[in-house]
């Protein structure tokens, strides 16, 4: 018997349910396969991402965690030869369906990358970038969005006096929070984070984690992390990815409440991975 994050017991969730449940889940990935040219990178991916929860993807390097994340806001479209089979539902609508508005999708589901990648612009212009793209011109309105986003990203106090300075001058941890603020400025519903702390020191990492705990009250969060402890500390649900043999596609071995994954995993491979016995 599994329990969900509130401790209420729920029936063990099968990895593949034919019909995604709408309402409870913001994102439902169904039977997703991903190809890069002839290479099958992912197979049979099924994940449900619950609203206002943190869902973590863990697993050894190269097992396709980031690819799944990038297929949620169709950033894989940019990779030549990348092809997706299966479905990804965002609030019940298949984002790979015909005529789906990718720009709208990316606005609703923002992305934060492994290395902080602020634009070589001022702090202000970085945060205002998204709103400007979507046609906000009014100075007062931009000022407000910038301030609100920086406050929510827990960066305002550190930068409020120097918004016109280059974002490049910030520390790595500040840059990453700036990137989060930049995503928040377009008012997304979900935030995807691809190993957001990989390039940060432990204190900066902890600050990002605290921030995400705060943000999940308002946003739905999916995070890819190499750091198992981070997934354990942070997430409500965890999906464990693995590649069986060299050249095989990545698959999800186990997906469930983080409590279960880190205290009594069902799959032996999960247990061996999280206890450091392989990988």
């Amino acid at each position: 018997m599994q329990t969900d994050v509130e401790g209420k017991s729920v029936a063990a969730r099968p990895l593949a349910t034919p019909e995604p449940q709408h309402g409870r889940y913001m994102i439902s990935i169904r039977d997703l396969d991903l190809f890069y040219g002839d290479f099958k990178a992912l197979e049979d991916i099924n994940v449900d991402v619950e609203h206002n929860r943190i869902t973590a993807f863990i697993g050894p390097s190269g097992c396709g965690k980031s690819s799944v994340l990038r297929s949620i806001n169709r950033l894989n479209d940019l990779v030549k030869g990348a092809r997706v089979e299966g479905q990804v539902f965002l609030d019940g609508e298949d984002i790979y369906g015909h005529g789906y508005d990718v720009v709208e999708l990316r606005k609703r589901v923002g992305m934060v990358f492994q290395r902080p990648n602020p634009f070589p612009k001022s702090i202000y212009d970085n945060v205002a970038y998204g709103p400007r793209i979507f046609g906000v011109r009014d100075r007062a309105e931009l000022d407000q969005v910038v301030e609100e986003s920086l406050v929510r990203a827990a960066l305002w106090d550190e930068v409020k006096g120097k918004l016109k300075q280059s974002a490049i001058a910030l520390s790595g941890g500040q840059q990453q929070r700036l990137c989060i603020a930049r995503v928040l400025a377009v008012e997304p519903e979900g935030i995807l984070l691809d190993e957001p702390c990989a390039a940060l020191d432990p204190i900066a990492t902890q600050r990002i984690e605290d921030l995400l705990q705060e943000l999940k009250k308002t946003y739905t969060i999916v995070i890819v992390t190499h750091n198992m402890q981070q997934a354990a500390r942070l997430s409500d649900y965890t999906a464990f990815f693995m590649i069986e043999n060299q050249g095989d596609p990545g698959r999800i071995v186990e997906f469930g409440p983080t409590n279960t994954i880190f205290t009594t995993p069902e799959d032996e491979r999960t247990e061996r991975y999280i206890t450091g016995r392989f990988g």
């Binding site: 070589p120 970038y129 995503v183």
Partner: peptide, 27 residues
């Protein structure tokens, strides 16, 4: 120009041309 700038811009919902004009070209 780092691919990460393009990804960041596109990830925010910018079109390709917006990305070139506002991020890639200035950089």
């Amino acid at each position: 120009v780092p691919a990460s700038y393009r990804e960041a811009s596109l990830g925010l919902g910018a079109s390709r041309w917006q990305t070139i004009r506002k991020v890639v070209l200035p950089s």
